[in-house]
Computed example of a mutant assay.
Amino acid sequence: MPGRKAPEEYRRKDILRAAYDVAARHGVEALTVRAVAGRAAVSHGTVLFHFNRRDQLIASLLDSVLDATTTLRVPADVERLTRPAERLRALLRAEMERLSSDPRHYRLFLEYWALGVRNAAIRRRVSEALHGYRRAFRDVCEALTREERAVPRPSGTRMNGRLAPTPDGLAEVAVSLVHGCALQAVIDPKAFSVQQHFGSAARMLDGHAAGALAR
């Protein structure tokens, strides 16, 4: 009936939020229709109306988890930066802080990754999401390497004795640093410092990427 679509969409979102709460508290394996219905304060049938079976509920929650952990968020202040090196630095810091601020997101990401060992569909979706995350970083990395190539150097020389980094290589390192930060924040939140991680990561890239992230 006309007019019922919007309320049902809101109800579906409420159920997904409840599913997230259940999974974040007790793990993905505890994600049952009954548990989600109880958390959302709706009937068992209402959950099944929106999600035909438990597998569909788990798959839909995966969309939310991947959006939170593998979608690059570019803050407005970072968007305004014009120098590629400064922009990459700022993106790394912003993503490290974002993913580490709520460890539940990354904990669920790790759970789904583990499920993907035995579930080809989940494994494929996680892999595709990570590929998209690297591709998002690649744009700024490409601008950075293009700027580095424009610096005049004697013919045939290498940057600081090393081969110049590629956009794909820098993007892979960037994602590894961001997700490595989130992983350590989950495993050892009391002892781990995001700021120290960022500072060390930036200095490491300064050396190994031949000054690509230098100020």
Rank of each mutant, 00 (worst) to 15 (best):
R53A: 12
R93Y: 07
L66A: 04
L88P: 02
Y112F: 08
D67N: 13
D67C: 14
Y106I: 06
S64P: 10
P75H: 02
A94R: 09
E79S: 09
H50D: 03
L91P: 01
L66E: 00
A90V: 04
A59I: 07
L92S: 07
V74S: 12
L81R: 08
L57E: 02
L88A: 01
L92V: 04
E111V: 00
R118F: 09
I58H: 00
R83K: 13
V74Y: 02
A90T: 00
L61V: 07
R80L: 15
V74I: 13
R83S: 15
R80K: 12
R93W: 04
R98H: 10
A68K: 03
P75S: 10
N119M: 08
R73M: 15
T69C: 03
E95D: 07
A85P: 06
W113F: 11
R118Y: 11
P84R: 02
L108E: 08
R80T: 12
S101H: 14
L66M: 06
D63A: 07
L115W: 11
P103A: 09
T71M: 14
N52L: 11
L88D: 06
A114W: 14
R98G: 08
E86D: 15
Y106K: 08
H50N: 07
Y106T: 04
E86R: 12
G116A: 09
D55N: 04
N52I: 01
A85F: 13
T69K: 14
T70R: 09
A59N: 11
T69N: 10
D102W: 11
L62I: 05
D77P: 02
Q56M: 13
Y106S: 15
R98Y: 08
E79V: 03
R83L: 12
P103L: 07
G116P: 06
L81Y: 07
R104Y: 05
L99H: 02
T70K: 14
N52Q: 14
A94I: 06
L91Y: 04
S60W: 04
L110V: 05
A94K: 06
R107L: 10
E111Y: 07
N52Y: 03
D63P: 05
L115K: 08
R80W: 12
T82R: 12
L108I: 05
R107T: 07
T69W: 13
T82N: 12
A90H: 02
D63H: 09
V117L: 11
P84W: 02
P75D: 13
S64Q: 10
R98S: 06
H50T: 00
R104H: 09
A76T: 03
E95V: 05
T70M: 14
F49K: 11
R54A: 07
G116E: 03
P84D: 00
N119R: 08
Q56G: 13
L57R: 00
A59F: 09
R87I: 01
W113K: 15
R98Q: 09
S101T: 01
F49T: 11
T82K: 12
R73I: 14
R98W: 10
R83Q: 13
E79G: 06
L92R: 02
L81M: 10
L115P: 12
R80D: 13
L88K: 00
D55A: 11
W113P: 15
G116K: 01
P75K: 08
A68M: 02
V117N: 13
V74A: 05
A90R: 05
L66I: 07
L57K: 05
A85V: 00
D55R: 03
F51A: 01
P84A: 00
L110P: 13
L61G: 00
L110T: 11
I58V: 09
R93D: 08
R98V: 08
H105V: 11
T71W: 15
L62F: 04
